[in-house]
Amino acid sequence: MSRYLIPVMILGVLAIFFARGLTLNPGYVPSPLIGKEAPSFKLPQLKDPSLTLGSEDMLGRLSLLNVWATWCVGCRQEHQYLNEMAQNNTIPIYGLNWKDDRATAVNWLNTLGDPYIASAFDGDGRVAIDWGVYGAPETFLIGQDGSVIYKHIAPLTNEIWEMEFMPLIREHCQKFSCSYGDLE
């Protein structure tokens, strides 16, 4: 009897592993930055290189850092949603323009709308490496205390915002008593 049972058990264990494997996304690599202080940076701004944008500018309030580029298809997909968020004052959004051409990027913002308070221009991708960026669009949720709360890799949608970001924001705001009422 057991000589038939053992192969069936092995098959069962394999089936569990395979079923689990089907629901995993191997393209998603969890960021080691979550819960840590956001990597500091200071870069010239995209639209006006004489101005800078850095991690210091983002301190003191909840905000998003959105990594985008004009060569990135997913960025175009999420752009309309980012515009809506900016219009509704959902949350301050900062941009990190990653390995892009400055003129093309400025033109993109002028044609499609600019949801960002400002975009930093990371032409050689060094700041992106500090942030562990590997595939745009990536959106970091930065806490009031300057820590990285969450990172979303893929275009941002309202569903993802409600399902993934809002619970974390509520939790964060309980701890740091920020006015997340404005965010809802």
């Binding site: 690599v29 960021s31 080691p32 930055l33 490496i129 500090d130 942030w131 562990g132 590997y134």
Partner: peptide, 8 residues
């Protein structure tokens, strides 16, 4: 590199 991208 691991500090930025993880063990992976």
């Amino acid at each position: 590199l691991v500090a930025r991208y993880g063990d992976f």
